[in-house]
Amino acid sequence: MRDLANHLHVKRAISPAAAVTDNTAIVSQIIDRAGYEKLMFAISTGSLADADATFTVLLEHGDAANLSDAAAVPDAQLTGTEALAGFGFGDDDEVRKLGYVGPRRYLRLTITPANNTGNVFVSAVAILASGRYGPPANPPV
């Protein structure tokens, strides 16, 4: 079967929004992976106007719904690396991915700019797969 849509659940992580013009961290929604074995974040950049800005990525996980127990995800529980998911001023209109294979239920993605004085457009989605119950609703809830 070639259908992929009925095997994936997509959740908003970082909404498309007005440009970020400073070094304020861009923090995702808390993603609940209940009912799904696999999770990957897809980060999409738009125009990155600053000529020396860099953007680091951090993935945190925990068991509390509000992530009051948040801890950085150990490298062994990532597919890909946070460094490879990061980007710089020359990475306009690109996509990065970062996968999670850890045991925790809740996750949060943070993108932190440095040296950013220009307009930056960033968004992200969480893609969940291997659902225990399926197929997932369309549109996703």
Rank of each mutant, 00 (worst) to 15 (best):
Y36D: 01
Y36F: 15
Y36G: 01
Y36R: 04
E37A: 15
L39V: 02
L39G: 00
L39H: 01
A42D: 01
A42W: 01
A42R: 10
S44D: 06
S44T: 12
S44H: 12
S44V: 12
S44F: 13
S44I: 12
G46N: 08
S47A: 13
L48T: 00
L48Q: 12
L48W: 05
L48F: 01
D50I: 02
D50S: 15
A51F: 01
A51G: 14
A51W: 04
D52R: 11
D52T: 03
A53C: 11
A53D: 06
T54I: 04
F55T: 00
F55K: 06
F55P: 01
T56C: 05
T56P: 01
V57P: 08
V57E: 04
V57T: 07
L58P: 02
L58H: 12
L59M: 13
E60K: 15
E60W: 09
E60G: 09
H61S: 14
D63W: 11
A65I: 12
A65D: 15
A65P: 06
A65V: 11
A65M: 08
N66F: 06
N66G: 13
L67H: 13
L67I: 05
L67Y: 13
S68A: 15
D69W: 13
D69H: 13
A70T: 03
A71G: 11
A72H: 07
A72Y: 03
A72F: 05
P74L: 03
D75A: 15
D75V: 11
A76L: 12
L78Y: 06
L78M: 08
T79E: 10
T79F: 08
G80I: 07
G80P: 03
T81K: 07
E82S: 12
E82N: 09
A83S: 15
A83L: 10
A85F: 05
A85P: 02
G86I: 07
F87D: 00
G88Q: 13
G88Y: 03
G90H: 00
D91T: 04
D91V: 00
D91K: 02
D91R: 03
D92W: 12
D93V: 03
E94W: 00
